[in-house]
């Protein structure tokens, strides 16, 4: 029998959790302001937004594909959300519903085209990235929308309880929702089944078409939620929102143990992956390190994470061979 620790070490969340705890302890000891209420609030805001973005990618990784258009959808939704409120004076709740509908529609379109044509999602979403970004720039002419209502600004910049910002609420709902969907609902099991072995899933009567469209629809919806949250946080509808989401959206799920070939993802792991990235980014700021280094560190982190995942796979394979 393996010890409790041995079992925990085989889970997806154990590695990132150790990194998070170690980082908090070390950085907190060197720089006590790291644990100040203000800094925790800043950290949590970043984590909340990035978690939603990472989940938008994670659901597509689960089905064994990639969605390059997560940021473009988020950006288009962001300017649409702000624009509808500024130009047409639509009340915020209605603008929110319409904005989410735009993201959902974008995702469904991705899924429909991928499933119908059989062309790889990489290419389809590369094309739709360009399409959505073009719409974005065409509408805004690269100028931000400034007319964001105060209620929305407040939601993105005030706290719910103690140092916990309101933004954590939608992120937590999204995280729990996606976890429940993947673990408990038929559609979630279908998504993982198709990611794990599409051929077998199809022969079992699972509709690849339906499953693919669902996954991309959810991805679009989450990307839209991310876009809206960024607008609330930045207090403007900036056309460049979403431009820098791509690396993070892959990094967090992969750090959290997701298998890029599909069939296996972890919401808890992805959330911890987001936390790792946020802490590293934040501490580089605290220690006055050139922000451009963040990209380098993020790249190294992705390599490290896929290396760990690969090593775990090889170990499992060895053990299986030895047992048979």
């Amino acid at each position: 029998m393996q010890s409790m620790l041995g079992k925990a070490a085989n889970t997806d969340w154990f590695g990132p959790l150790v990194v998070v705890i170690a980082a908090v302890v070390v950085i907190g000891a060197i720089e006590p302001t790291f644990l100040s209420a203000f800094n925790i609030q800043v950290l949590l805001s970043a984590i909340a937004v990035n978690l939603v973005i990472a989940l938008a990618q994670m659901i597509i990784i689960a089905i064994g594909q990639m969605n390059l258009s997560v940021g473009a959808i988020g950006g288009l939704v962001a300017i649409a959300f702000a624009g509808m409120m500024e130009v047409w004076g639509i009340p915020a709740p209605l603008a929110l519903v319409l904005a989410l509908a735009i993201g959902l529609a974008g995702g469904l379109a991705n899924g429909f085209i991928v499933a119908k044509t059989g062309i790889s999602a990489f290419i389809i979403t590369l094309a739709s990235l360009s399409f959505f970004k073009g719409l974005n720039l065409g509408i805004t002419e690269a100028q931000p929308f400034y007319g964001v209502p105060d209620a929305v600004k407040a939601f993105g910049n005030t706290n719910m309880i103690g140092p916990i910002p309101w933004l954590v609420l939608p992120a937590a709902i999204a995280g729990l929702g996606i976890w429940y969907l993947l673990a408990k609902l038929r559609i979630g099991r279908q998504i993982l089944a198709v990611g794990g072995n599409p051929h077998a899933a199809e022969l079992s009567g699972i509709s690849i078409f339906q499953t693919t469209v669902w996954a991309h629809g959810l991805s679009g919806l989450l990307a839209a939620l991310g876009g809206v949250m960024v607008v609330a946080r930045l207090q403007i509808g900036q056309p460049s929102i979403g431009d820098d989401w791509l690396i993070l959206s892959f990094a967090a799920p992969v750090i959290g143990g997701a298998v890029l070939a599909g069939g296996h993802v972890s919401v808890a792991g992805t959330a911890l992956g987001v936390v790792v990235v946020a802490i590293i980014t934040q501490s580089l700021v605290l220690f006055h390190i050139d922000p451009f280094v963040v990209q380098v560190v993020l790249g190294a982190l992705i390599l490290w994470a896929v290396g760990i995942n690969r090593w775990r796979e090889v170990r499992v394979e060895r053990r299986l061979r030895g047992a048979s």
Binding site: G196, N197, H264
Partner: peptide
Amino acid sequence: QERNLIPRF
């Protein structure tokens, strides 16, 4: 004839 199972399920 070929195995048609989802490995992680």
